[in-house]
Write a protein that binds this DNA or RNA. Structure first.
Lengths: 137, 137, 137, 137
DNA sequence: GTGGTCTAGACCACT
DNA sequence: GTGGTCTAGACCACA
């Protein structure tokens, strides 16, 4: 279910956040469905409970899950996911910088265009596959 | 000449690297032209010399500059740095991840498309301006 | 009769306490009227009986209800609970802290004033409605 | 400078957050002024560095401070403080509930009005005093 | 059982 | 030196 890469530059709690987002956005984790408990997931991933806790807290802050003390953490409605303007601004800035770097490396507009189209298609396909996968359950 | 943003998430040495790359690739810093010395630049930017040193080392590692002991650091040939496959792979991965995050935030393909078009146009304009600017020198 | 919000920050037993207080003070639950049993209410609300138990205990401690062993829990005289100085002090402290937090967020005195007026009016209306509702019984 | 109350129901990191907000909002900590380092403050308060860290991170998230890795944490412009809608909604809800409770305890609208006026005035005075105090430094 | 907070260490990248 | 992340424990309130 989860694939952690300890060697990755992405920190563990960020990997947990992103993979959990994937499960929620694609509907594999349905609205109001319970997430594994902090302790449970920490055992599965063999990481410290605090690390999982940190990820869950951030997911709650961003509106992906909601917490009921004593009961656990549950997937929120996708509609509740906050379009955090700060996060969007940061992602936009990352895109801007990255595109700029490609230009520095001598990529023409058309080459960048082609690359982006490929990546976007890839992204859409991945989303579709995950959604289909969850329907079969 | 340099614009450092201490509040940015991007670390200072990365900002120096990226802006120096810009100067080199756009030809504002011509081949074999001397870069400011580590001490000089650190004074201009009011940052720690170690930070500038680290940026220069990384620029050398990536082939953007070469160092002559006792003389200083010089801009390398643009041909030497173009099409750095490792760099391209990394930038592609960054794009992939960033697009995925936007999808997580509920962005539709069309919205992402629109955003990318805007950014690309911005990038092209900036490139044009820099080229014109360097021709006048 | 009861509206529990699991997603609320307010713990479940506190929600039960507050709503039970509302029923008692507005006279919907009249003096010496029997409250639903712990087991009954826990089934209705689909919560753990311990949670209801805890709420009832706290209501008893604050004088809102009294317990007769073997018979159940009954609404106390409203006179017994009014003007609980400890409770008032605590609520005042909560107000003080909350107003301060609004100031931290940059709210001007006028903005806070306006907000309070709105809330007070809301509160008065709700009180009126409840009183009318209970007269008809 | 700081007053921690270990017995308080307010957690330590929340106390740090609130007191730091006070220092920033009142201008005692001026824009771009450095906060004590995580380790330094943890020693002063004899709490764990992680606890201070948690407070600083939250302050950054809310826009009260900005962080430069390797340099430290700095007071942000008050204009940058984010009017976090979720936080405002929560504070409003707290006010609503608290006013309701006072009504339950038999307070008339006029009594609540009077109490609120007193608290508001208190709050304004405190803010004024802190601002004056910082001017004298 | 659950999440929330805290302590006491440790290692890393950056300045 | 700085903040950022992580581990390995512990205690608390709540369900």
């Amino acid at each position: 279910m989860f694939q952690l890469d300890l060697k990755s530059r992405e920190s563990i709690y960020e990997q947990i956040i992103n993979q959990m987002k994937e499960l929620i956005i694609t509907g594999i984790l349905k609205e109001d469905e319970k997430l594994p408990s902090v302790r449970e997931l920490s055992k599965i991933l063999t990481v410290n409970p605090n690390t999982v806790q940190k990820a869950y807290r951030e997911l709650e802050r961003q509106g992906y899950v909601y917490t009921v003390a004593g009961l656990g953490c549950f997937a929120a409605s996708i509609a509740d996911v906050k379009r955090d303007e700060a996060a969007i601004a940061q992602l936009t800035e990352t895109l801007r910088t990255t595109l700029r770097q490609l230009t520095y490396l001598g990529f023409s507009k058309d080459e960048i265009d082609a690359l982006l189209m490929t990546l976007l298609q890839e992204d859409q396909q991945k989303t579709e596959e995950l959604k289909k996968g969850s329907e079969h359950i």
